[in-house]
């Protein structure tokens, strides 16, 4: 046993060591959020690229068909006549994203859909609606790609009416209500992509550079009437339109402050997906705002603190107001 303990030996005291560790800890603590911010910025960029892709797909669709697809396609005898002349026969058809599949390199998926004879949830069509299309997703979303309406993303757990692939993009219906006579699917949207009717770019009197085409949306957790816990949100096959009436990251959205512990219809009604629709709006998991693409194909990041009137002006296609938000 050698006695090498020597008070004159150069070395570190415990205090010095602890101080060094503390300083390194602080430096790492300062660095980590910065790294996370850069990663989030990269995800946001990828998301905005996909918005641009989707807007180019819509522009190509408009060139080929001389009009845009309807934002969604739903008719019901429940609509009051004041909502405009809609078919009296029930038809639950396809949304804008389903119509532009051939323009986002999804020809095989598009050809597996029977657009003419079946509702989107019937037979082979349901398999298509449960197919995740990356182009319509934003990678910042913690639930990105999880199936909606049933079983928190467990695939194909329920009947053919459940499990739909999500979309983080919703057409901008306008600034007015999504509901007409209490029924979702107001065919008189004052934006570009709304229920039943098609618009053309020539209808956009406010200018393509001043009018929102598609905005970002997120999912919320809830409970399916018969299947238990589930995610609810927008799916690309249909229904993916929203109004600016709820703002950006509005009170009914996540992460806009939706209190998922409050379920006002527990016990009665129990139709959680309808509740999602009544409260939802545009939202994202990026900090402080959400991606939107204008009809001219330019992607903009809109703050969740934007004045409501400015947001509504951007949503209308022929409101006659002059927007200078992006000029």
């Amino acid at each position: 046993m050698q006695t090498t303990l020597n008070s004159n030996r150069p070395g570190f005291t415990l205090v010095e060591l602890l101080v060094v560790i503390a300083i390194i800890g602080i430096l790492v603590g300062m660095l980590l959020p910065a790294v996370q911010q850069v990663r989030e910025a990269a995800r946001r960029t990828q998301c905005s690229n996909r918005f641009r892709q989707a807007s180019i797909a819509l522009q190509n669709y408009e060139s080929a068909n001389k009009e845009l697809p309807p934002g969604m396609f739903f008719t019901s005898t429940a609509f009051p006549s004041s909502c405009g002349p809609v078919d009296t026969s029930f038809y639950n058809g396809w949304g804008w994203a389903a119509k532009v599949l051939p323009f986002v390199e999804q020809n095989n998926l598009a050809s597996s859909i029977n657009f003419r004879t079946d509702n989107y949830f019937n037979n082979a069509n349901w398999k298509a609606t449960a197919t995740v299309v990356e182009t319509f997703l934003c990678p910042s979303n913690p639930e990105a790609g999880a199936l909606l309406e049933c079983c928190s993303g467990k695939s194909n757990g329920g009947s053919a009416t459940q499990d739909r692939a999500p979309s983080n993009m919703a057409g901008v219906h306008g600034s007015n209500s999504l509901f007409c006579g209490g029924v979702r699917g107001n065919p008189e949207g004052n934006g570009i992509l709304f229920n039943y009717y098609s618009t053309r770019f020539s209808d956009i009197q406010d200018g393509q550079s001043n009018t929102l085409l598609i905005g970002e949306v997120t999912e919320v957790p809830g409970s399916h009437p018969s299947q238990g816990p589930a995610l609810f949100g927008n799916f690309w096959s249909n229904w993916a339109v929203q109004s600016t009436i709820e703002g950006v990251n509005g009170p009914g959205t996540m992460p806009g402050g939706r209190d998922i512990t409050i379920d006002p219809i527990d016990g009665v009604g129990e139709n959680r997906h309808n509740e999602y629709w009544r409260e939802a709006g545009f939202s994202s998991w990026h900090p402080g705002g959400a991606n939107f693409v204008l009809a001219d194909g330019s992607v903009h990041y809109i703050s969740e603190n934007i004045d409501q009137s400015a947001l509504d002006n951007l949503a209308t296609r022929d409101g006659g107001e002059s927007n200078n938000a992006f000029n």
Binding site: S76, T77, A78, S89, F90, N119, F121, N122, S159, A160, T161, Q162, F179, G182, V183, P225, S226, P264, I265, V268, G269, E270, N271, H273, N274, E275, R278
Partner: peptide
């Protein structure tokens, strides 16, 4: 201010039964 109450599934009676189950109990303002 909006207030909601449950309705019957009558308004969607032309739906297939498995779909009508999803639409039943629609809330009406």
């Amino acid at each position: 201010i909006q207030a909601f109450q449950t309705t019957t599934a009558k308004q969607n009676e032309d739906l297939p039964p498995e779909v009508a189950a999803d639409f039943s109990g629609d809330l009406q303002q």
